Amino acid sequence: MAGSSKTVGAALLAGVALCGVLGTSALAATTGPAAGTVPADRCSAGAPYHSRGPLGTPTATANTEVTEAFRTFGNNGGGWPNQGGWAASDGVYSTTVPGKGVVWLMNDTFLGPVNQDESMTEPGFIHGSILLGGADGLPDTTITGGTRDEPKSIADPPGAVDGDPWYWNGDGIMDGGKLRVFEYRIGKTDGEPPWNFGWISTDIVTYTEDFKVERVTTSYGEAGGVSWGTELVQCGRHTYIYGLKDNTIHLARARAGGLTGNDWEFWNGSGWSSDPHSTVAITTDVGASYSITPMGGEFVLTTTSAAIFTDHRVYVATAPTPIGPWSPKTPVYTAPEGGVGNLYAPYNVAAHPGLSKPGELVISYNVNSQQGDDLLANANNNRPRFVTIRF
């Protein structure tokens, strides 16, 4: 069975092995510039996720509507007549594409059909897929590389041989009129399975309007350094590019429309520098994935702690600028799946502004198991859960 040796989720593995998810830091740590010392671009006030007025105290509840929409979508064959589309995955990012609406960017993907009891028998497996949202933004159909009879990952690194290396995607954004997605080039190593892989470098994949690979651009970031593209925020004249290193957030920016250029600027603690090695952490103790979202004139960080195997909570912090200073992280939600049997959750938190109403933010987190058989026995053990945070 393709993917039968996969005992833990791809995006989490990337976080644990490549980004130091198991590191420890103080949850209350706040870093970044003093408020008001750094001029910040203003995000478009017309964005649907902007609230009116100051943000209040965050509270969170399970969003069963969106969670059940993904469950139904997977159980019904991912929008494919042959029932062979999306069945389950981790690495759930979303972005809004003009003329397409909400587009979902998924990592390691099991392909259907799903049995009536929600188990999977010999499912297909690819490293990346795209889901198109319908008029309501909820998943409507599955897009992969290859064909529906012989699907392949949505994108593969140039020069890959027998699937090595492969891509795990980060965030995506419209830039210069094109959908561009950060892709982490991952290759096999001599490590002990299932940890026998490593991050090599980062590319940016530019897609055509019908989601074919138009161009692959090698970007900043190298093994042992900052993995850029965990989160992308477009504000005014710049696209802010958030990265991850040792459970800490780093920040760069590019001129709007220039994401694939080689003239980024990097925050060095006191200003912007052209030296990519000058970056410093703007806050600490985050998971393998996190989101930063402009809301009500502030920036909202949603994340897990670094200790995702023992801490099953989602945290929120805010800042007045894209850089900081960040408030102490507040726990707002505990994933009920965390620590149940072999399951772990939450990990890979991502925000979805395209589904969010004013004054609230819809986020997702992933669920997985330390035993691959759990995923085959119940596809829901590898499907996203959604939460609505209200301010």
Rank of each mutant, 00 (worst) to 15 (best):
A2Y: 15
G3I: 04
T7F: 13
T7E: 15
A10L: 10
T24G: 05
S25D: 14
T31Y: 03
P33L: 03
A35L: 08
G36W: 03
V38A: 06
R52H: 02
P54I: 12
P54V: 12
P58D: 00
T64P: 01
E65C: 07
E65G: 06
T67C: 06
E68R: 10
F70W: 07
R71G: 01
N76K: 14
G79I: 13
D90F: 02
V92N: 01
V92F: 07
P98N: 10
V102E: 04
V102D: 03
V102F: 00
W104V: 06
M106R: 08
F110H: 07
L111M: 09
E118Q: 14
S119K: 09
T121F: 13
T121K: 12
G124Y: 05
F125H: 12
I126S: 03
S129D: 08
I130Q: 01
D136R: 11
L138A: 07
T141R: 12
T141S: 11
T142R: 06
G146F: 04
A155M: 11
P158W: 14
A160P: 08
P165C: 04
P165E: 05
W166M: 04
N169H: 08
G172M: 02
I173W: 04
K178T: 06
K178H: 10
V181M: 03
I186Y: 07
I186Q: 08
D190C: 13
G191V: 14
W195V: 12
F197R: 11
I200K: 15
E209D: 13
F211M: 12
E214T: 08
E214A: 14
T217K: 12
S219Q: 12
G221D: 10
E222G: 14
A223H: 15
Y240V: 05
D246K: 07
N247Y: 08
T248S: 13
I249D: 02
I249G: 00
A254F: 11
R255S: 15
D263T: 10
E265G: 05
N268A: 08
G269T: 05
G271A: 10
S273Y: 06
S274P: 10
S274N: 11
H277Q: 15
H277Y: 15
D285S: 04
M295V: 06
E298L: 05
T302F: 00
A306Y: 01
A306E: 01
I308S: 01
F309R: 03
V314L: 07
V314D: 04
A317G: 08
A317N: 04
T321I: 08
T321A: 11
I323M: 07
P325E: 01
T330G: 13
T330Y: 09
P331T: 10
Y344W: 12
H352E: 10
H352S: 06
H352F: 11
G354Y: 08
G354W: 09
L355V: 04
S356D: 08
L361T: 05
V367I: 11
S369Q: 05
Q371T: 12
Q371C: 11
L376V: 03
N378P: 04
A379Q: 12
A379M: 08
T388G: 10
T388P: 11
F391T: 09
